[in-house]
Simulated assay, not measured.
Amino acid sequence: MMYPQRDPFDELNQVGYWCFIKVLPEKISEFLGYVDSFDFYYLYREFNFHKFQSAWLLNLRRHVLEEIAKDTIVKERIRLSITETLNEIQVEARDREQLQYILTHYFC
């Protein structure tokens, strides 16, 4: 068994990101509902942000974070989500530092 375990939806999330940045010309709505992170990329502004998880941001590259933060409404919703996550006691110190960095550099 490998650690950390690989996300079985990595490829689907990549397709969602390609839809988000408009690399894929056609919409692929039949994949909606399988995994929330794909739904976020695909729906973006219309995504149900009650399902958003700040942990999704931890392994994203700078250009992806910049692209996500371009919309002011999405930026505000993610800022609130990160703030809620940082207020939780059980966040690992390393993840907390990374989320603080992401918050201050991309979503403030």
Rank of each mutant, 00 (worst) to 15 (best):
M1R: 12
P4R: 09
Q5H: 14
Q5Y: 13
D7K: 11
F9W: 09
D10N: 13
E11T: 12
N13K: 15
V15L: 10
V15S: 05
G16K: 04
Y17L: 09
W18D: 10
W18F: 13
C19H: 11
C19P: 08
C19M: 14
C19N: 11
F20V: 09
K22W: 14
V23T: 14
L24F: 11
S29W: 13
S29R: 15
F31Y: 07
L32D: 00
V35Y: 07
D36S: 13
D36H: 13
S37G: 10
F38S: 01
D39C: 06
F40H: 03
Y41H: 07
Y42R: 07
Y44T: 03
R45F: 06
R45E: 04
E46M: 10
F47K: 04
N48E: 07
N48S: 10
F52N: 02
S54M: 04
W56H: 06
W56E: 03
L57D: 01
L57H: 02
L57P: 00
L60Y: 09
R61K: 15
R62W: 09
H63A: 08
H63P: 06
H63D: 08
V64D: 03
I68Q: 01
T72H: 04
I73Q: 00
V74S: 01
I78V: 07
L80R: 08
S81F: 00
I82H: 03
N87M: 10
N87K: 13
I89G: 10
Q90R: 15
Q90H: 15
V91N: 05
E92V: 10
R96E: 06
L99Y: 04
L99K: 02
Y101R: 14
Y101N: 10
I102K: 00
H105C: 14
Y106G: 02
Y106N: 03
